[in-house]
Design a protein around this nucleic acid. Sequence first.
DNA 1: CAAAACCGCGAACGCTGTTTGCAGTTTACA
DNA 2: TGTAAACTGCAAACAGCGTTCGCGGTTTTG
Lengths: 227, 227
Amino acid sequence: MSGAPTSSAEPDRPSVWARPERGARGPAPTHSRDQIAAAAVELADADGLAGVSMRAVAGALEMAAGSLYRHLSSRDDLLDLMVDRCVGELRPYPKDGGSWQDQFLLLARRQLALYRRHPWLPDAIARRAVPGPNTLAYFDACLRLLQPVRAGVAAKFEAIAMVTGVVSLFARSAAAAGTVTFDHVDLAAYPHLAAAFAEPPSARPDGDLFERTLRSLLTGLLTTDPA
Amino acid sequence: MSGAPTSSAEPDRPSVWARPERGARGPAPTHSRDQIAAAAVELADADGLAGVSMRAVAGALEMAAGSLYRHLSSRDDLLDLMVDRCVGELRPYPKDGGSWQDQFLLLARRQLALYRRHPWLPDAIARRAVPGPNTLAYFDACLRLLQPVRAGVAAKFEAIAMVTGVVSLFARSAAAAGTVTFDHVDLAAYPHLAAAFAEPPSARPDGDLFERTLRSLLTGLLTTDPA
DNA sequence: CAAAACCGCGAACGCTGTTTGCAGTTTACA
DNA sequence: TGTAAACTGCAAACAGCGTTCGCGGTTTTG
């Protein structure tokens, strides 16, 4: 969901998606992958990513912490599951409406809503999540929307990653507006900061900022691009 | 460095910048704040943010882990120190050259270089770092560059945060290009992904992408903006 | 029916950030 | 000048974390 696709030889941790959901020999697992992911997402929505500890997730499912490792090989696997589960909420993908910019913007709006529902999602994604089926479907849908665009695959992936990133910036700026506070700071040494705060508080930028930003970003990234 | 300034009543953890560097009564500390921050930055540059444990930092300075808490009240404080120290590398700020867009772009380029020197910086900043003197100076310089722009303070802060965010996206995409790998995945269910990989690998987008993106972002965010 | 494979469990390991009591050192004030 | 307060660094400990391991019990395979 970030970065361009290449096949570099990095420390490939074996993804969850490779391992079979359950073995063929033993007793049936008392919990499914989806149940685990759902419980973890619920916990993250409530307490943030830090609240998603193996013990907490296991506790929410009334199982022992170590038992989780029958389903996952690490906490990273759990986060991959969570990410893919939430990306699935983007379905169904826009189809048959307006220009590719319009469609992409619609998708971006849905991403923004998703990131607001799950404020921890950008962080979980930025951690280089291994794409699961839903994430692959998301990329596929993006590429489908970008089909009319005459640009190379690399450029398209760059654009997708950039849009995803900007969307998460908007989600963060909305969620954490007013996070940075300059109170109790001596502004004497910072004349322009001081002047800014002397000014009467201006209205926050209008609501179309999201659309205008993404439109200029998309056209800038994809339309005038050669390759 | 992210988000707009407001004075909301959030759980204000007391910043490092408030506490005096050393008391007036006891023996002289064997290490200064700067030495601690420098050691931590060195560690982060080498091993990433995860490598910056209190014990590791203390070890690099040949002191006990608990002793760090004579200078800092938490690890967050340490990260704040690290961030502000690195932001200081942006000095001196551009002055007297070209249009405000040109000057801001120059600053953005320097930020990009900074983020490449310290790949952990974006993460440390995104964690809502408490602005130190260097960060305040950075904001001050940004506002000075934006002085000719007729836009409200809130819009300017939004723009600054957005530029900072996009710069870190570029830094990440460059550092982690080829991170997401679709190898060993059955692409049968994802026709557009499959088609994308069947295509001969196209050249990566040209180098002016950074400039074009930021220019369109800046003009989109600030020039047509009302108040 | 035996062997292999898998499940869930509880206890442990090493790591983390942080707290605490201690002894020693420097300063401020009467 | 002497004493008390304030500060320093240290070692040890605490709770929490992700993770591993050996156990007994259950299910399937041959």
